[in-house]
Write a protein that binds this DNA or RNA. Structure first.
Lengths: 200, 200
DNA sequence: ATTAACATACCAAACGGTCGGTATAAAAAT
DNA sequence: ATTTTTATACCGACCGTTTGGTATGTTAAT
């Protein structure tokens, strides 16, 4: 039954979002799934292979398709980018809202870093993603300079990194503290601040 | 013997920087320390209380005393700030260089997030730190505007956040990918990019 | 009659932690 | 000066529990 497998996958993701890999026990996975050990090992080889599969899915959820955004206007590009991220994170929060733990926030990162520590391949994939992201931003920044949308003696790579890095920062602060403010709004403010000072 | 206690603390920190809390076993701690279980429990109440103590020390290592930096020039302020962070991180890397695992990078974050997940107080302390940091940056930005060092219609808080957030981003990317580049240099480039576009 | 989909009972290993004990040395009593 | 007491530092066998995983079912579908 493919649905049973999916059910186990989803249930386990919930658990891994609440505590570290080792803190989630097989008993918990099995109990929360409403299944038995036998059922679990019918579908999965081991606890670790389950975790790997979950983490790879989780990572691919975070992939951004930059081609969907307008490449000819930096302002439009980042606006659409923010909207997209906003939508994604809202979906995610909604998806796990019934877990209702604030800890979800913290463990969002925890699961990523634990995966990175456990599977070196994961780190490599992240690096590749990052380089793809950077490339996209550089292209858009270059276009914006050419079209005269922005003017700055700062080189394109550094401007692109300005946008990329502040993304990390905003997300991190949001996850850690800013339960109040909405993430997209925080990021938009940040991007606007960068943009304002580049605009011609 | 106070030295024995310190020895356990140091040895355990190394271990916790290499894998997650649960992945580090009492046996490992005791073996690596060259001591016995009995000795350990003579000095510490439990594994968890040891972890808490380590993590609190680790956190306090990251505290920045902003009053040491020049408050009257944004350029000077961030230059000194970068130098300071650079020095701190170099010390840290040196301190644990003999562990010689690349994993150290990843687990630098892991230990923080695991602490946050395990001890809510830890998260609160981080939030307080953040608010103090932000305040300092806002003051300096305000001064720089008043003195005419920079000119921007962006409000002070948003400019301050620009600096603070990109710090997170640079650090995160450094930890994850940029084994090559030196951290201070990356951050300085980022700050220069922000500054260039604010300068009058 | 097979196979897939589960359940149950069980296992060895590993876990954090305890406990009775020893060696050494400082402090107190004689 | 010598003996007795007390405290510290440390050891390692052992304990109960929990761990991920397995062997052997039973039930339901094809």
């Amino acid at each position: 039954m493919i649905e049973t497998r999916e059910h186990i996958l989803n249930t386990s993701l919930m658990l891994f979002l609440q505590k570290s890999y080792k803190d989630v026990t097989m008993k918990e996975i099995v109990d929360k799934s409403g299944l038995s050990k036998g059922a679990f090992y019918h579908y999965f080889e081991s606890k670790e292979s389950l975790f790997r599969e979950i983490v790879l899915r989780f990572l691919s959820m975070g992939k951004v398709d930059y081609e969907k955004f307008d490449q000819n206007s930096l302002k439009l590009f980042y606006s659409q980018y923010v909207d997209y991220l906003q939508k994604s994170i809202n979906e995610l929060i909604l998806m796990f809202s019934f877990t209702a733990e604030e800890k979800f926030n913290v463990n969002f990162f925890l699961i990523m870093f634990e995966a990175a520590a456990r599977f070196p391949e994961f780190l490599k994939m992240e690096l590749e993603n990052y380089q793809k992201d950077l490339k996209s931003w550089i292209t858009v920044v270059a276009n914006a300079k050419k079209s005269g949308e922005i003017r700055s003696k700062t080189n394109n790579i550094d401007i692109a990194k300005l946008f990329l890095y502040s993304n990390d920062g905003v997300f991190m602060r949001f996850i850690n503290n800013d339960k109040s403010g909405n993430y997209g709004e925080l990021l938009r403010r940040n991007y606007n601040a960068i943009y304002e000072n580049l605009k011609t």
